[in-house]
Design a protein around this nucleic acid. Structure first.
Length: 507
RNA sequence: CGGGAUGUAGCGCAGUCCGGUUAGCGCGCUCGGUUCGGGACCGAGAAGUCGGAGGUUCAAAUCCUCUCAUCCCGACCA
């Protein structure tokens, strides 16, 4: 094996997908495991991606009339107990605060003391604590709709964790709204799902399937749950955002009542919806390759790495002068509403080392400038979505235009690549044998990557859903929107069905 | 919470079975120099309570007991 064929990330996706994912996170310096079990430390390059996600979503939420606010991290146990299904769904994974101080234990350590009269739960989600405030804020139909969003950390005590995909503590955004009518709340629920779908495709360059969750997969306490589902490169589904129609369940539990237009008191209708740092996991698994992270320009922390190459002081001077001119020329540059950032990397490392550093970090464009380029008044530009050695010589005067145009092309290209991948791995299956064969790995030694999305009929009964889950670990990801009615037979029991659903293995 | 494994330098490991000089190796790090258009090289250097406690022994990373932690595999999950 020659050195040229070596990939920056080892193992490759094909060799060991799970390990590849971890190595990409590490190579790009996005995050690391904390000393605290199940928790992650998000490092600057990873956090910058999150900040860009926040920025884009904040603007979208603003356009739909939502405002940001902040509620306590501690939820009194009694609030939590008010919604039975909600309790059942989250009880097993709650961190509970029972004491308010520490005392010396007489053995050189400390012990909890000052037991609280009522335990607090560290929020796994905030419906109940926000509901308590909403109950006070809402008195009249004139107070509605109430459209609030919160950016926060939440804690769910998970058994097994993976950076960005499932951690004990994670960051997210949770929207909570209150409405006068059921119709309006449902409209809101679907509107926000649409916002998520648009955000995923336009900014993250990830195509998603919108649909409704089955009874078994819905949010504890919700009437209906809707989600966007994305396909990762190992052909598994990743739930990337959820929007819940909560009916009057939480309004009843929290006492969110208002006087309607007829002067009567009634419970309001609420929704909640969220996306989390899991989106960064989606980003990684949707686009990255065996050389590391690949970032869509509209969400990348920085867009262009400039790598000057020189051997001595004389070369250094002319090369750096040109590099600085390029940095200068990008001041104020934008792609759509996103500001374009550059990184001038003249660290005392070999040029190839600096190049690979930025490849692994997923920066969309690299500009190399050496003495030869200075002589010809041009630079070499490489796109991250193409091979690491595919470089284009560009005249100095065209550099900015070329880069801005190319950043747009990269954004489009990686979206289309992801869409094509999903289409190629989505199949209609009507026979049970075929369905089971589809989800049975062909290569026993490397069973990770197989299957895909199966569009199959389902009769609607939880038993059939459960049976397939038990047999194959395949679940119904969603009942997709926008599909025509079609006669068919349930993939498990053969009963009459009017619709296909999306089956897949999932994260 | 059940089954399996592992704790030795920042990271990855060897050494443990069969106790015996000053505990090694690779990567990384620091300093100096040569390099720089596809993951450089040379020289010097710093860095270790061998997970913890107790025991056996002239002698323990190595044997015994207890303990703690982590990872993998299963049931639950954005």
């Amino acid at each position: 094996m020659s050195k040229k064929e070596r990939t920056a990330i080892q193992p490759t996706r094909e060799e060991n997908y799970a390990e590849w994912f971890q190595q990409v996170v590490r190579a790009a310096d996005l995050a690391e495991n904390s000393e605290v079990r199940g928790c992650m430390v998000i490092k600057p390059w990873g956090y910058a991606i999150w900040e860009n996600i926040q920025k884009a979503l904040n603007e979208m939420f603003r356009e739909t009339g939502h405002r940001n606010a902040y509620f306590p991290i501690f939820i009194p146990k009694s609030y939590f107990e008010k919604e039975a299904e909600h309790v059942e769904g989250f009880a097993k994974e709650c961190a509970v605060v029972t004491h308010s101080k520490l005392e010396e234990d007489g053995k050189g350590g400390l012990k909890p003391a000052g037991e609280l009269t009522e335990a607090y739960i560290v929020r796994p989600t905030s419906e109940t604590i926000i509901g308590a405030s909403f109950a006070k804020w809402v008195n009249s139909y004139r107070d509605l709709p109430l459209l609030i969003n919160q950016w926060a950390n939440v804690v769910r005590w998970e058994m097994r964790t993976r950076l960005f995909l499932r951690t004990t503590e994670f960051l997210w955004q949770e929207g909570h709204t209150v409405h006068e009518t059921s119709e309006e709340a449902m409209e809101e629920t679907l509107q926000m799902l649409e916002v998520y779908a648009r955000f995923a495709s336009e900014f993250l360059a990830i195509p998603v399937i919108k649909g409704e969750k089955t009874e078994g997969e819905k949010f504890p306490g919700a009437v209906n749950t809707y989600s966007i589902e994305a396909m990762m490169q190992d052909k598994k589904a990743l739930q990337s955002g959820t929007s819940h129609f909560l009916g009057q369940n939480f309004a009843t539990a929290s006492g969110i009542r208002f006087q309607n237009r007829e002067g009567e008191f009634q419970h309001a209708w609420t929704t909640s919806w969220g996306v989390s740092t899991r989106l960064i996991g989606a980003l990684i698994m949707a686009h990255s390759d065996d050389d590391g992270l690949v970032l869509p320009p509209k969400i990348a922390p920085s867009h262009i790495a400039i790598v000057p190459i020189y051997r001595d002081d004389a070369e250094r001077e002319v090369v750096m002068a040109m590099a600085n001119r390029i940095v200068e020329s990008f001041k104020g540059a934008r792609i759509d509403d996103v500001r374009v950032y550059t990184e001038l990397d003249n660290r005392d490392l070999t040029s190839s080392e600096r190049n690979w550093y930025w490849i692994k970090k997923g920066i969309p464009l690299r500009i190399e400038i050496g003495p030869r380029d200075v002589a010809s008044n041009s630079v070499m530009i490489a796109r991250r979505d193409l091979g690491p050695r595919e470089k284009q010589s560009v005249e100095m005067e065209n550099v900015v235009d070329y880069c801005l145009k190319t950043l747009g092309e990269i954004q489009k290209n990686i979206y289309e690549r992801a869409l094509k991948f999903r289409q190629e791995n989505t199949v209609k299956i009507d026979s049970k044998d075929e369905f089971y064969a589809f989800y049975t790995p062909k290569n026993a030694e490397q069973p990770e990557i197989h299957g895909g999305f199966a569009l199959s009929h389902w009769c609607g009964c939880p038993d059939c859903e459960e049976k397939i889950k038990d047999d194959l670990k395949v679940t119904i990801r969603c009942i997709p929107f926008n599909q025509d009615e079609e006669d068919g037979n349930c993939i498990n029991c053969g009963a009459q069905s009017k619709r296909r659903v999306v089956f897949a293995k999932s994260y």
